[in-house]
């Protein structure tokens, strides 16, 4: 018999790594996620450089990227925060409140919610400010985040090590701080990430219709819409390519996070009740 020795050599060179390293390794092992991270980093650098250098069609596309990406980041963060809050409140308030809160969230994910942004954009008129638009985009992204986050939290609360902590007499507050919150970080981050591509999609669609970013602010969607209406394929290429690339990267990273983190800390599958 192989004695349970703990430190003997194993085939996997990374077997000793901590859970956070292992989660990182799993994320970068997913090829679209690794590529997506690289693309996003490169894009950020390019946009920053474009702001400094400026000029030409490339500079214009990068400048538009600055607007689109800032909007996405703000709206995405807002949507993620709203969604997580939604899910956390639902789980914390007990079963009946949970059902009452999650049913509308699930129903909303099945509607063309992104159209709410051009609606609000149109109603606010061309003099609309950026803040309400960000807020609406955040609201659009929130329900999907809430649904995923609720599932993750439910799964987390069923994990056996929480029973073990209870058997060890650890009070509820400490259990929440030391065990539940740290273990919720990565799955919830994966849930929150989905707000980013949603916010970018909603903004680009609205801007393309001329009902998104306020007049005078040019995002990728605005540029694409103008080029499409003018039939100008050359002007379209830059922003369309960048937008496609960004969306692809955001999805790739999100997919990778879902695969790497949602199952990340369940060290073994299954287990009986």
């Amino acid at each position: 018999m192989h004695g349970p020795a703990g430190t003997e050599s194993r085939t996997d060179p990374h077997w000793r790594d901590g859970p956070w390293q292992k989660a990182g390794q799993r994320l970068t092992a997913h090829r679209p996620a690794a590529a997506g991270l690289t693309v996003l980093a490169a894009l950020m650098l390019a946009v920053a450089a474009g702001l400094v250098a400026g000029g030409g069609p490339v500079g214009a596309a990068l400048a538009a990227g600055h607007q689109s990406l800032s909007f996405t980041l703000l709206a995405g963060l807002g949507g993620a925060a709203l969604g997580l809050l939604w899910a956390a409140a639902a789980v914390a308030l007990g079963e009946r409140a949970e059902r009452a809160m999650m049913a509308p969230a699930a129903a909303l994910t099945g509607l063309p919610l992104a159209l709410a942004l051009p609606l609000v954009g149109g109603l606010l008129g061309p003099q609309r400010g950026l803040a309400p638009m960000v807020m609406v985009a955040a609201l659009i992204a929130a329900p999907a985040v809430a649904v995923i986050a609720r599932d993750e939290l439910r799964a987390l609360l069923r994990r056996e090590f929480l029973s073990a902590a209870q058997a060890a007499g650890i009070p509820n507050g400490r259990r929440l701080r030391r065990h539940i919150l740290p273990n919720a970080v990565l799955p919830l981050a994966a849930a929150a990430w989905t707000a980013l591509p949603r916010a970018l999609m909603a903004e680009s669609l609205a801007s393309l219709l001329g009902l998104g970013l306020p007049a005078g602010v040019t995002g990728w969607g605005t540029a694409i819409g103008a080029a499409a209406r003018a039939g100008d394929a050359v002007a379209l290429a830059g922003p369309a390519l960048l937008l496609a690339l960004t969306l692809w990267a955001l999805h790739g990273v999100g997919d990778g996070m879902r695969l790497a983190f949602a199952t990340a800390f369940s060290t073994t599958a299954g287990g009986r009740r």
């Binding site: 680009s204 209406r229 379209l236 496609a244 969306l247 955001l250």
Partner: peptide, 18 residues
């Protein structure tokens, strides 16, 4: 694999322009 990079509105814009 390329699906996420081509939402319908973007494809529509590209087709309309080209």
């Amino acid at each position: 694999g390329v699906g996420p990079a081509m939402p319908g509105f973007l494809l529509a814009a590209v087709f309309a322009a080209t």
